[in-house]
């Protein structure tokens, strides 16, 4: 009961901080970066639930993110559907794809599933790049209009900041509720012991497929919003580099809690910004490779000193602090 209370207090502080942030920071730079944090955090969270809670080693999050972006983007750019309807349509398409792909693939375990979804990542990226007439090919999809809902058009970082964080926190809230219900217990159970899970009438393949499709749909929502935010997408945005970033976020933040991946994406994206801002003078030819070196060092340091990620480290620190206070009092 006590830990639950602390948990909600932490979230209240976080959400109030997010709400105040646009009004206390000058310009749109900070909230612009925070939009990316929200999109990435949504993806990383879904992926962490799959990896850590369900034990499903799927690397397909960038793929579903990209499909959500492209389907909604193409429909809006070609004026086939209004953006808001495109988002819903994209989610349905991605759900169907995740279902069709997941049904056979989720029979694979561990590394084999990782290999299969890793292949999917490249197949979709290449397909998007090669279907020039429909997707715009390597150059990317242009002419995506901004998101408009019932006559109100979202423009600029300020609007998308709120929309993206509502999506991210909404997904977190959904996961929190779900993981503390019969569905979440079924998902954790099938990870701990499949044979015991089926002995209490849990349909293991069905629940694996359900949580796989759920995270795919969330990734699709994030992707659709992402494409309306940038009004531009290229296939390479949804490829291997994004996967590596998501995994880095999960490792840095820690996958055992829901706020771990959020913390991971905040740290990773702001670290990247800091590298670019402060090291530009020293290393003018700054490329993604330099980022990779920094993140590599960070991952190694985290794995050595905080194997449960920042979230786990903070938990231990808080525990230590309380004991210290308790003793002095």
């Amino acid at each position: 009961m006590n830990s639950k209370h602390r948990f909600s207090l932490l979230w209240v502080v976080f959400i109030v901080g997010l709400a105040v942030l646009p009004f206390v920071t000058p310009g749109t730079y900070v909230i612009g970066v925070m939009c990316f944090v929200a999109f990435y955090a949504t993806l990383a969270c879904g992926m962490a639930v799959l990896l850590e809670q369900a034990g499903i080693f799927s690397l397909a999050a960038p793929t579903f993110f990209g499909l959500g972006a492209y389907v909604a983007g193409i429909l809006a750019a070609r004026e086939i559907l209004p953006p808001w309807a495109g988002i819903i349509f994209a989610a349905l398409v991605v759900a169907a794809i995740a279902y069709i792909i997941g049904a056979p693939l989720l029979r694979l375990r561990g590394y084999y599933l990782a290999c299969a979804t890793f292949g999917l990542l490249f197949i979709v990226e290449i397909a998007l790049a090669q279907s020039g007439e429909i997707t715009g090919g390597h150059d990317g999809l242009m002419g995506i209009p901004p998101l408009s809902v019932v006559g109100f058009t979202l423009r600029g970082d300020f609007h998308y900041y709120f929309v993206s964080w509502v999506l991210c926190l909404g997904c977190l809230w959904f996961f929190f509720n779900m993981m503390n219900s019969r569905v979440g217990r079924a998902i954790k159970a099938l990870h701990d012991s499949e044979v015991a899970a089926s002995s209490v009438a849990i349909n293991v393949p069905r629940f694996k497929l359900k949580v796989f499709v759920l995270t795919a749909v969330m990734a699709s929502f994030a992707g659709s919003l992402y494409c309306f935010y940038l009004q531009f997408t290229t296939p390479s945005m949804f490829g291997f580099p994004l996967l590596v970033e998501l995994l880095t976020m999960i490792v840095i933040g820690g996958a055992t809690t829901l706020y771990g991946p959020v913390l991971g994406s905040v740290v990773l994206i702001w670290l990247r910004e800091a590298i670019h801002v402060y090291l530009k003078g020293i290393l003018p030819k700054l490329t993604a490779e330099v980022d990779a070196v920094f993140f590599g060092v960070l991952i190694v340091a985290i794995l050595i000193f905080m194997p449960e990620g920042l979230a786990g480290g903070l938990d231990r620190l808080a525990h230590f602090g309380r004991r210290l206070l308790g003793k002095s009092a």
Partner: peptide, 11 residues
């Protein structure tokens, strides 16, 4: 988890 089979709330 034992109650899973006799309950039905969806995802």
């Amino acid at each position: 988890t034992g109650c899973h089979g006799k309950t039905g709330s969806g995802m």
